[in-house]
Design a binder for these strands. Structure first.
Lengths: 212, 212
DNA sequence: TTATACTGAACGAGCGTTCAGTCGGCGGGG
DNA sequence: CCCCGCCGACTGAACGCTCGTTCAGTATAA
């Protein structure tokens, strides 16, 4: 569902048109960002890929940075949606954690170029935009943290610091998009198994995780 | 020890001077790259920070990208040195793995801004330079991989795919520099403990998680 | 006629890069 | 011993180019 980013002031009035154009711009930008990065793609290129003139583009954004914001907001809304639905499944903490990790990896797989841009270009954002990004990250961490804490209470887990563990596990999922170039010979399922193996058993044991 | 990067052609003749200047440039560049990234720091800024004029700077490099290469080569030689000495210690695979992870995290701590630049600006490099980077990465992975394979043979570890596991573990160490902003309240020792805990025992703690 | 969406040439700033020129120390001829 | 010329190291104004951004103008539909 298209989302109008309210922080971005526009000249055009029609709300539906704004949303449609923002989506066009987002997709066009992502196409280039993933290949060349933010700084090496020009506004002209984005405009062309979005089937707009430079002038028209600038009636939907105030500056180039707005395009990056647009892309980031797309990530956020996407993840909010997908993650919370993945978490709501199994009641067992171990099952929930497994589902969360699987969902995250699947998302990272589907939007790997987006994640790459997220990690590589975050330092480009202004303080205000960065705070927003941190906030979203914190929310995902606390989702995982809640699961881990429950697992600890029920004796399934023994994590010393649930917050730290949540951060580390979430980061671990980013291997797939960030180290893609040297994971070429593996597929999503294999990497998922490896990550789940490490999280649940460490390096010492593999007790047949995928038993379905 | 200063290292002359032979790939970079220079106008100046004196080898020792080149090495000294390259080190100056490296440090100056890193200072700015860490704060603003590669694209947002100008050659003028780097020259000033290195106490050189723009013209003098260009007698030690051929283009701006050379500066990034210089920085990368610094990382490589540093890591080659430190890692191999850390690996050569204990004979026990578990002890070796632990030493390797601890050494990596300590290095990542000391040069966290360098690592950040490495991850954020790698897409700026030309194909040739990228291949070099990959090669170095592969070497570190295979160091870890060898340890894991030995641990498997001796029954201490049970990693299904040692190569994949090595990649994942090495990546895991990058939480510390890459997620620094939301690990502010933790210190190196705590994060090291957490990473070691996850690698050796998983989330289930020392007793380990049995099948569901 | 007017409001709205759009066009693309033009602008100015900043960038990476170059080069004509300066400086200082060293060596050999007077 | 001095002086001159040379050469290696350095200087920074200038150049050309690309970029983000703007705006006078066009098109269309109401």
């Amino acid at each position: 569902m298209p989302v109008v980013v309210k922080q971005i002031e526009t000249v055009v009035k029609d709300r539906a048109l704004i949303a449609r154009r923002h989506e066009q711009i987002c997709e066009a930008a992502l196409l280039h960002f993933a290949r060349k990065g933010y700084h090496q793609t020009s506004v002209r290129e984005i405009a062309e890929a979005a089937h707009l003139s430079v002038g028209a583009l600038y009636t939907y954004i105030k500056s180039k940075e707005d395009i990056l914001l647009l892309v980031y907001h797309r990530i956020f809304s996407l993840f909010r949606e997908k993650m919370s639905e993945a978490m709501a499944k199994s009641g067992d903490p171990a099952g929930q954690l497994r589902a969360a990790i699987e969902a995250t990896l699947k998302l990272y797989d589907e939007y790997h170029d987006l994640i790459l841009v997220l990690y590589q270009e975050s330092h480009t954002l202004r303080r205000e935009a960065l705070q927003q990004l941190f906030e979203v990250d914190r929310r995902y961490v606390s989702m995982l943290q809640a699961i881990i804490e429950r697992g600890n209470r029920e004796g399934q887990f023994a994590a010393q610091d649930p917050n730290l563990t949540a951060i580390v596990i979430l980061f671990l999922c980013a291997v797939w998009p960030l180290k893609r170039w040297n994971l070429k010979k593996y597929d999503l399922a294999t990497v998922t198994d490896s990550v789940l193996g490490l999280v649940f058993n460490g390096i010492g044991g593999s007790h047949g995780l995928r038993d379905n």
